[in-house]
Design a protein around this nucleic acid. Structure first.
Length: 589
RNA sequence: GGGGGCGUAGUGUAGUGGUCAACACGCCGGCCUGUCAAGCCGGAGAUCGCGGGUUCGAGUCCCGUCGCUCCCGCCA
């Protein structure tokens, strides 16, 4: 080894020892006859002192060293005198008196500072990701990620799970996200697809009798990106045989609680996790992944304003729509301009407008106040529990638009007003999702979760009569307004599976050609089974208090799915194209 | 596919029609034996993302384009 001990490990107990250190020069402070380095390795920083009186040679060489040089130092650990102790450094009670210095590799001046957490443009960070990863915040995040995966593996291994790898070269399927595809050289014109998730393989592992499986699985989806979406991402994928919904939830809930307690100082708001139905979550929070760190529930005014003289309300209700409101605490001071901005946002999400009412000492002030009866005004104040200084925002529209817009306002305004405690983790389960939803563009039913999700046992009949009413035996785990995982009890018999394919408008021939392996497997004794997939990147991002999952992925892609360091994707040679039997059709201008 | 924000020395920013540009950090040189975001003195460094247009004059206004980013659509 080129070093005898890690920089960050040095303590008072090492005083007097001769040590060899190796690492990067984090910072240098040159006082002439005395030069200080903060020497960094993965374990942390330690101060190294070059004293011309102790080793003129080492001191002379140290003058030429610059930040990010890789060096080796041999020296003696010394206690720092009283008054020279640095309480901000774990190794601040000691320093290393350098006797020998070797420059293992010099370094160019880095394009951005490694030794401080100043903001840097993402394009520069990503181009030099290997330098960005040297920074303390990225190192902490990746260490945390390692702790999370290590904990999960140990936890599940102790629960009798097997970690089993499934193929990366898989098969394209018609349902779901766009696939990343890989051309076959051996089979001209044919393609593999990268897994969107190992869903079918893990179900086949259940058929194969492995009973408890998990995998830290890479998944690929060729869709447009977001702060919390990358083209490739990591799931904790898990499946169990002979279980019911409650069993999977109990296991995951216990694991998440222990995980948080072992790797984080954040507090879980409520244990056991609250369970909401999809219907409750939408009605109360306008979202199927509600942030429960704060209240601000949506309040239903539909019956109150059914006969309102304010035509928008009455007409909406008459047309079968809904009128709901949101109390924003202390926001009566919002300017007209601010409310106009909110109105624009709400319109962009499909609403026709936004009604505002300000709770003032002598009642409600609003552009629509003159249309509202005393009974309506009192009812609004009572139901929203509005107090002086509060702002009430109301939307009248279809239930879907009302929930979408008020749900957005709720989370957006809560963030703006800092209503969410950043040290709290508000986990909850959302259950009883619809099995199917109507796709207006495609004019057909599509799976809310995926087509292998089982309906609630008593709801199978609904699939034939009223498909939209059938509820799924599915569950999502949500934390602080983010979906961190979703799972279900799966279909394990070919009849139900065919029934779902029929409801989705997939013909029997197509079902057999695309999913024949699954249907056939189900005929050879498939056990009842279910599981879950947790978004590992999102989970780690939440624990790291990061907004974007890019901050917890070593080499992420940009919002346009490029790797700025590798300059990927990139063209391939004509020879490669020929081998793969591919010809490029340039996009039309 | 659509919409918003951003792009000015290596990095972060200022500069919204009038000497082609300022500040901080970094970088280079000098001084300095107790600093730890070291200090002091001096210096170098920018075709203002790119292309076009408007104008007597464009970092600044307009159009296009590229890149980063956020959002909608999309994401079984």
């Amino acid at each position: 080894m080129l070093k005898s001990i890690n920089c960050g490990a040095l303590r008072l107990e090492h005083v007097g020892q001769t040590v060899t250190l190796a690492g990067w020069v984090h910072r240098r402070r040159d006082h002439g006859g005395l030069i200080f380095f903060d020497l960094r390795d993965r374990s942390g920083l330690v101060q190294v002192v070059f004293n011309a009186d102790i080793s003129a040679k080492a001191h002379a060489l140290a003058e030429s060293v610059r930040p990010e040089f890789v060096i080796q130092v041999q020296g003696v650990v010394a206690a720092r005198p009283e008054g020279l102790i640095n309480p901000n450094l774990a190794t601040g009670e000691i320093e290393v008196e350098a006797h020998q210095l070797t420059i293992l590799n010099p370094a160019k001046t880095p394009p951005f500072p490694i030794n401080e957490n100043t903001p840097v443009r993402d394009e520069v960070r990503l181009k030099y990701r290997y330098l960005d990863l040297r920074r303390a915040s990225m190192q902490q995040n990746l260490i945390l990620r390692h702790q999370v995966t290590t904990f999960i593996r140990q936890y599940l291994n102790n629960q009798d799970f097997l970690e089993i790898e499934t193929p990366i070269l898989l098969k394209s399927t018609p349902e779901g996200a766009r696939d990343y595809v890989v051309p076959s050289r051996i089979h001209p014109g044919k393609f593999y697809a990268l897994p969107q998730s190992p869903q079918q393989m893990k179900q086949l592992l259940m058929v194969a009798g492995y009973e408890r499986y998990y995998q830290i699985a890479r998944c690929f989806r060729d869709e447009d990106l977001r702060a919390d979406r990358q083209p490739e991402f990591t799931q904790l994928d898990l499946e169990m045989s002979f279980v019911e919904s409650q069993d999977v939830r109990d296991l995951i809930e216990a694991m998440l609680i222990e995980l948080v307690e072992s790797v984080s100082d954040m507090q879980i708001q409520q244990k056991p996790f609250p369970v909401l139905t999809y219907h409750e979550a939408m009605e109360r929070y306008g979202s199927d992944r509600p942030d429960l760190r704060y209240g601000m529930p949506l309040v239903d005014l539909t019956d109150l304003v059914r006969h309102s003289r304010f035509g928008v309300f009455a007409n909406t209700v008459a047309a079968g729509g809904r009128v709901k409101a949101l109390r924003v605490p202390g926001a009566a001071s919002f300017s007209r301009k601010r409310i106009d901005q909110l109105t624009d946002e709400v319109k962009a999400r499909g609403a026709k407008g936004l009604v505002w009412l300000k709770a003032e000492r002598d009642g409600l002030r609003s552009s629509i106040a003159k249309f509202l009866s005393e009974e309506e005004k009192d009812g609004i104040i009572q139901r929203t529990a509005a107090e002086e200084g509060d702002l009430i925002l109301a939307v009248a529209d279809t239930a879907a638009v009302v929930h979408e817009t008020l749900g957005w306002l709720r989370t957006h305004l809560a963030a703006e007003l800092n209503l969410a405690d950043p040290n709290t983790l508000a986990f909850c389960w959302v259950v009883d999702f619809p099995l199917l939803e109507w796709d207006e563009e495609e004019k057909r039913w599509v799976a809310v979760h995926h087509p292998f999700t089982s309906a609630k046992p008593e709801h199978w009949a609904l699939l034939e009569t009223d498909p939209g009413k059938a509820l799924a035996n599915a569950y999502d785990v949500v934390c602080n307004g983010m979906e961190v995982g979703g799972g279900s009890i799966r279909i394990h018999d070919a009849g139900h599976q065919q029934q779902v394919f029929r409801a989705l408008g997939i013909s029997e021939e197509e079902a057999w050609s695309q999913f024949g392996h699954l249907l056939e497997a189900f005929s050879y004794g498939a056990p009842p089974h279910g599981g879950i997939a947790l978004g590992l990147d999102r989970l780690v991002a939440i624990l790291a208090r990061e907004e974007s999952i890019r901050e917890v992925i070593a080499f992420p892609k940009t919002a346009s799915a490029m790797d700025l360091m590798l300059q990927s994707p990139s063209p391939i040679s004509p020879q490669q194209l020929a081998e793969l039997h591919l010809r490029i059709v340039p996009p039309e201008k």
